[in-house]
Write a protein that binds this DNA or RNA. Structure first.
Lengths: 232, 232
DNA sequence: CGATTCATTGACTAGAATCAAATACCGTGG
DNA sequence: CCACGGTATTTGATTCTAGTCAATGAATCG
């Protein structure tokens, strides 16, 4: 069993290629735009901590550009990434006054940071805002529930295929090419696998002709039908 | 921030004294109690379908007694139980107009069934209710997030230990004995394991002295410290 | 260019799944 | 009350997927 320090050290955060691709600013539709008006824009370098586990929960955040991982560490260094937040996603909801996960930028990232006190004060007067808060939270819940099915009942190939299709849909470049902002370690910790298994599975999907890998961070979805079947 | 999540944690134990319990004045500040006043009590036999996947979402439910499983089936029959709902828990939230999971009674169960249309109409006038809806949803989200860590990164022993400690805490009989309303298959589908692995793991925990199994549905937590370590 | 980190590949292992069988449990009807 | 049939659970033997350990190859940055 690796020591915590060693385990964490072996997944050191590596510098990422500066990638202009992740800066397409937030779309101005849906409840998110209501929120964006209530806070200030803050920027983070890659791998910066936005908040830590158990930190007092003062703010709620909306991603404008870049990507954020929401994660939890176990005592021995095992890590679970609960979600990747892409532009338009909201994170930082808490029922108690403390964050139960940490949030870190995956790459250079801009967010809108909104004071919870302001948000809730407004929500008590503004039924539309209150409903927006609720439906954003339900959307989060649905994402978590889908992820439960992936982690509980899908094999490695299905997990990776599901991940690729999901990221492609959410990053919403109409094309078949996806740019992954996150490392293999991040993907592994999101899918409940190891980096080796993620890597092997991607290679296998490429051999099957389901995807192409022009570079390690670029994935072309060649056979969406095959991928969707693995997604079932 | 008020902390409705704390109120949920103090919920009453299964086979609950019939619904009167939820109308006590002392309870009226709890989100669940606010809801319970808005619907009618409905009873279900064991293994009855409360709603199916893709069913139109007309109602939200509060468990009064018994237990409910929220689950999803894959095409080939694999099943993931997303949550067990015990007395005091709320289920049936949807952002869209359709349920994305099915809900089934695990044993004889009573619920309060509340029309969504009524609920939302009230919520738009009543900030307290709106906030209660939101915080109940956040509590659900947190439960799902904890479960992600279990499914993504814990081994069989840790999963079962976590499950037992969680159920014990939520059933909230101050004692160390837990009555499991659900079958081994249900537990397996909740924990992302097989029935054989669940059974073997329980046997193993008993051999270790962490638990006792007077009968298959009764578990005595003998060494909470050991269990909590597996929970870490 | 090196130095460093990241990703891929290979060989082997471990833990849970699968396949199969025995045992315990429960409600029913004699 | 007991025998019976069906179901749930436990236990055993074996297989297989993903994990671990180790090395190599690729990419990036100073």
């Amino acid at each position: 069993m690796p020591t915590p320090a060693a385990a964490i050290a072996t997944r050191a955060y590596a510098p990422l290629p500066p990638s202009g691709k992740w800066k397409d600013d937030a779309d101005t539709h849906r409840p998110v735009s209501i929120l964006s008006a209530l806070g200030a824009v803050v920027g983070y370098d890659r791998n910066a901590e936005i908040y830590g586990e158990d930190a007092s929960a003062e703010h709620v955040f909306v991603v404008l550009s870049g990507a954020v991982r929401i994660c939890k560490l176990m005592g021995d260094g095992r890590r679970q990434i609960e979600a990747f937040c892409l532009p338009g996603d909201v994170f930082g909801w808490e029922a108690s006054g403390r964050h139960r996960f940490s949030a870190e930028s995956v790459c250079d990232t801009k967010v809108v940071r909104i004071k919870r006190s302001i948000l809730f004060a407004r929500a008590s007067d503004d039924a539309e805002l209150a409903h927006a808060l609720w439906s954003l939270t339900v959307a989060e819940l649905h994402r978590a529930q889908n992820h439960l099915l992936v982690l509980g009942r899908k094999n490695a190939q299905e997990r990776v295929a599901t991940f690729l299709v999901d990221i492609a849909a959410r990053s919403g470049t109409g094309t078949d090419e996806v740019l992954l902002p996150m490392s293999r370690q991040d993907i592994a910790d999101y899918l409940g696998l190891t980096i080796e298994t993620v890597s092997r599975t991607l290679t296998h999907l490429e051999e099957r002709g389901a995807i192409a890998l022009p570079s390690s961070r670029r994935v072309v979805l060649r056979d969406r039908h095959a991928l969707r079947q693995l997604n079932s």
